[in-house]
């Protein structure tokens, strides 16, 4: 039973960490919005899905790569990768702002019941998915291979591949930048202020609408970056991939403590590792079961997740 785990431990760990970092970035989309609005952004899964198409469009339609082209090298490689990343972040960021405007802002201004916003978010997520389904004719979309998956070196019997290394380093970097932004920038402080006490923040002259839009944008950018890494590693997308990935990232956010940015980090990584280890030891059919049993156990003992709630826990 454990033979696979022992034999392939490092391969699995690396794969789990790479997957974990993709979860971390998507979880940010959930956790940021929750931290500020105390509401789950159900459309985040579809924001992710749209983000993946940003990368596909850049490599396939702007740089004209096809399934049979040779992978890019040198400066061209960096150019295509960076523009794909930016495009995914842009697409997802704009989609997130759009979601906020359509599904949240008006209802919030009218002071509607929270459940109404929840439903409107689910509504827009269905709409986003259906639009993509129509655009792609319900078909899966393969992404051309831009980055050759070179095996850099072998460590303890595990192949260290270029795409995984790039994913881990770049995703960690993006996470770090966003975290610093929230911690140190003026806007970041405003976001935390609103998260702590909306009314007090307003009285201090914080522009609530701008803060909320920025929160959605930052969450969207992180989610879009996740879309880019997802395509780089898996080279495949479809209109319905958002649900599975979104569910996993949401689980990661709750596991780490939703509303807490550090929580998203540890939650995402633990989930990625947990998924691959559980699949290897028990069989992939037990993956979801194991993940949710662990989640329930964690919540039993730490109801606010591993890292508690937000940086600011006091809220009426």
């Amino acid at each position: 039973m454990f033979a696979v785990l022992i034999d392939q431990f490092w391969s699995l760990t690396i794969a789990g960490v790479a997957l974990g970092f993709i979860y971390v970035l998507i979880s940010l989309g959930y956790t940021m919005v929750y931290g500020v609005l105390r509401m789950i952004n159900f459309a985040n899964s579809e924001i992710f899905m749209w983000g993946t198409f940003g990368t596909v469009i850049t490599s396939r339609d702007i740089f004209n790569y096809t399934q049979t082209s040779e992978p890019a090298t040198g400066g061209k490689l960096a150019l295509v990768l960076v523009s794909s990343l930016l495009m995914s972040m842009l697409v997802a960021g704009l989609t997130a702002i759009f979601v906020e405007l359509v599904a949240y802002r008006r209802l919030r201004m009218k002071g509607t019941n929270r459940l109404a916003t929840l439903i409107s978010a689910i509504g827009i997520s269905i709409a986003l998915q259906e639009v993509m389904r129509l655009l792609t004719d319900s078909r899966p979309v393969g992404s051309p291979r831009i980055l050759e998956k070179i095996i850099l070196t072998e460590v303890w019997g595990a192949n260290i591949r270029l795409d995984t290394v790039i994913t881990i380093i770049a995703a960690a970097l993006i996470f770090f930048v966003l975290e610093r932004f929230i911690k140190l920038s003026r806007m970041g402080k405003a976001i935390r202020a609103v998260s702590m006490n909306e009314d007090a923040a307003k009285l201090m002259g914080v522009n609530l609408n701008r803060v909320i839009t920025t929160t959605f944008l930052v969450g969207g950018l992180a989610t879009g970056a996740a879309g880019f890494f997802y395509i780089t590693v898996f080279e495949y997308t479809k209109f319905n991939i958002g649900f599975t990935m979104g569910m996993a990232a949401f689980t990661a956010a709750v596991l780490g403590g939703i509303g807490n940015i550090r929580g998203a980090f540890y939650g995402g990584l633990s989930l990625g590792l947990l998924e691959v280890y559980a699949s290897a030891v028990l069989g992939t059919q037990w993956k979801a079961v194991t993940v949710f049993i662990v989640l329930v156990l964690v919540l039993l003992f730490k109801p606010n997740g591993l890292f508690g709630e937000a940086v600011q826990t006091t809220r009426a």
Binding site: V4, D7, Q8, S11, L12, A15, G16, L19, Y230, F234, Y236, I241, T244, E275, V276, S279, A280, T284, K287
Partner: peptide
């Protein structure tokens, strides 16, 4: 989409 456990 992540088949790494199966591949292991």
């Amino acid at each position: 989409t992540d088949f790494s456990p199966t591949i292991a």
